[in-house]
Design a binder for these strands. Sequence first.
DNA 1: GATTATTTTCTCGACAGTCGAGAAATTTGA
DNA 2: TCAAATTTCTCGACTGTCGAGAAAATAATC
Lengths: 407, 407
Amino acid sequence: MLTKSSTELVRQRNSVLVLSVLRRHGQLAHTEISDFTGLSSATISAITTELEKAQIIEKSEQQAASGRGRPRVLLRQRRDCGYLIVVIISSDAVQYSLVDYAGKLIDRFSEERSHDPSGAGRFVQAVRTGLSRILDRSKISQEKVLLISISSKGLVNSTEPVLVWSPIFGSDQIDFESALRPEWQAKVILDNETLLVAAALGAREEIVKGADFRSLAALSLGHSIGLGIVRRGNETGQEVSAPNFGHMLHMAGGGLCRCGTRGCIEAYAGFYAILRSAFEVPLDTIPAKFVPVAELDKIAARARQGHRTSTFAFRQAGLALGNGLSRMLSLTERMPISITGPGTRYYDLLRQGIEEGLGQSHIVRMEGMPEIRVVPDEPILVFEGHLNRALSVIDQDIVISGVQGGE
Amino acid sequence: MLTKSSTELVRQRNSVLVLSVLRRHGQLAHTEISDFTGLSSATISAITTELEKAQIIEKSEQQAASGRGRPRVLLRQRRDCGYLIVVIISSDAVQYSLVDYAGKLIDRFSEERSHDPSGAGRFVQAVRTGLSRILDRSKISQEKVLLISISSKGLVNSTEPVLVWSPIFGSDQIDFESALRPEWQAKVILDNETLLVAAALGAREEIVKGADFRSLAALSLGHSIGLGIVRRGNETGQEVSAPNFGHMLHMAGGGLCRCGTRGCIEAYAGFYAILRSAFEVPLDTIPAKFVPVAELDKIAARARQGHRTSTFAFRQAGLALGNGLSRMLSLTERMPISITGPGTRYYDLLRQGIEEGLGQSHIVRMEGMPEIRVVPDEPILVFEGHLNRALSVIDQDIVISGVQGGE
DNA sequence: GATTATTTTCTCGACAGTCGAGAAATTTGA
DNA sequence: TCAAATTTCTCGACTGTCGAGAAAATAATC
């Protein structure tokens, strides 16, 4: 359904536009903003004075010497305009980061995670104390925290911050919104981890390719398997999604997965699955809860020396991934694939299987093999994705709610 | 990348909005347009007088008696504002329809299709003469034809009107844009047939559910298998896509498909595949080019009487469809599925397999079985989808290009 | 040191668009 | 014939963008 437009909406969108170029390029002068946005100088004046009055941006005292002429005055976000807390949940720890409005990291710590499975409720409690702790350490008042951005592996509700399914808690849903609302008035968003990786890669790619960028997928290999897809939207920036790829059906009636279903991709390509297959344990064995990476390294070493069942295990994993990717490509357009996560260290062993698995489908035979890149540093990408998404959400909210209220 | 907004853009969008409610509800009075759009009466006045001057809409002489008070004057599209030609390519015929700007069918005929496979070039030639013919018969000048909307089964380029792969011509690409450009200055669009079915169903659904509508998939069963997905977009109406579902990998190294690959869904669920499987022909047999429906009806009749291999054939087909749908659902959100096409007459035989195939995946076990509806009248939906899409494209183009030029 | 050239920022009036209020138009009912 | 009701139209206020040019501030030049 279409909806009506008004002149106020125009100002809102242009204000967000100004903030977004400021975010992308750091501090900028009046003229530069005008160049980047395509808006006239007069409009930039109007918008920036408004944003300055609302205490969202400020004039930087550091003058950029720009040859002769009136010196430029640089504008930048006010760091203390608001704060962001990033919570990254991984299988063995939870990392808390406090970030200011300009995207600068202020404080960070990690907390070990207890491995007891019973504790969805206890886990939420731990997150709440973690959040209090990072706030206390920084002496920032709670109202100044505008957004709490959480990420986890698993399946996430697309509209509300609810963890629908996760490798650790299974179908024990966690609703972060209602869990944090009593204490925090900040907005809470939750994203799948690999979605954030894809978002970060997409943002990088768009800087390089500009308007030529179309789409991209990120595949994360580890104990579990994640996939994120980012597509260029019409005008609303990029669209990202995190399908339930690890638990897509690879083979009906196949190996038993941690989720309880048979034949998921993860049941062939997850770390525990590779272990199981290398030791020729029956495929209906209940998977190990946790596999040390050292264990897999040993199998990989043997595979590299030509050991048959070890090689076979990685090959099976590759095939499952390749078949799955081909199915994903059948449902989307052709796009490059970036492989990331701890599993990238075995890419040499997985590669042949992946390519063969891809090649078994009509779409790949017709359009050719998609471009595959290996990008090992996943944690950096996750954090970068958090910042990209969270800060642009803050920009949006701040403009919609805060501009006229600032003075 | 975000892009700048201006007040002119606001007028453009609101004009398109006015045209779209006019299209949805037929002729409307000033006040009603105001109610439907949420725009103020003054704005409606401004926009409608502009559109009337540009000869896009007109006052209807038929006065709607509305009790006491000043009588309403109804506004409606001018039928002769422009015309649309709809070309529906199916496996045995090509249907041409001439439609006026108000969506009324003016003329229609079908032409048999020669089954010779060599003729991508000859086929394009046939389409060109078909288009000339429908224009000649109606005595409408060529410039008045604003859009030619074509549909076919197969894989379509998402940005240009290029048929990338089709059941009949294989990888012999057909670029309708360059084929028709010398004669026609009308815009040319090409969509996958099942995409249009999905679009039509989505539009119907949105009328019923309004803002509650989220997404929906249409599955077309026949000689080949098609899938269309429609999702509610942010504010830009609905987003539709037509994945290459029929040739998604069902089972690595499986039955030989018409496309030359092994193991496609179509190689299990297409009419030719059901035939092959019912007669226990080896799965690597080159598929029949064309299967009369009567032939399949016979198999279905036997299956309904309990004949084993016939039942098995339909069950295998259902499993392939169910597995494929579960994979699709793993990559999207949960959505209802409408099954359409000639294959719906065998739905009683397919159903169990489809449900079992769906149930083998994690996503369905977790979220439950998606709602499945059977909607047999596919041709009507295809045409309805054509009109929905084509006329809204025309509205958009007409507002962008034509409004100030009208006077 | 005064002047000129150059560059950036700011300001003003014109123009486009939406909205609310109320005037004008037109029919029904008393 | 007049009042009530309803729709359409019009006017002034407000918001927004833009182009042009004024104002500001520095570097180069004489």
